[in-house]
Amino acid sequence: MRKIRIFIILFAFVSLLLSSFVFFNAYIKTGHDNFQEITFDDENVVLLVNRSKDEIDSAYKKIGKKIFGWSTYYFNINSKAEYVGDTLMSRSNRTGEVLHFSYKLREEDFKTTSLKLSAGIDVKVTAQNSKKTLSGVINPSFGVNKTNSTSNTKEEITEFKIDLAPYTRVSLRISGDCYVTSGVSKYYLFGIQMKKGDWERIDVETMYYELYEEILER
């Protein structure tokens, strides 16, 4: 009985270790939820997640001092890129019968703006229209301490019915064009630096939906 107890405790401990290993290694390649891949038109531009610590540190040194407010150094402003988004829907039929199902896609399932902020800052970046230059640049927003936030305004719903053949999987994925802006910012109060952090914003320009079916092994 005692051996069984030890075995259970050991098993639980190993499981916990394994799960934390998986958890700490589960990261998003682009640093943004919903975006699996981002490829810039300009090969010299890279995502914030791919910038080295030295590069970010030297960017901080380039930020001009201010008496009050935010001061920013931009790595890139509205750089055009193509993205591959998440799979929005995936449905499998592992039965021998045709499966009839109805799928409703809400636009809120995929956010059109993604903001990645480092833990040190809490800011609102204004870059609504991708083709316009940044206005308002970076505005402090005290109170709520968000590290990542997303927003979306207009909603479009699509609903379709589909027959799924036996042992097949149907999925809906999304890709398109986007604009990426990133930089580092410092916040000054009476000329003293109070906060600093790096950030990146993605504004989605187009969303292309693709429905595709795969055969499952029996």
Partner: peptide, 11 residues
């Protein structure tokens, strides 16, 4: 028949 499909969305 496919009753409805949203092909793309652009600003």
């Amino acid at each position: 028949y496919l009753d409805d499909f949203l092909y793309f969305k652009a600003n």
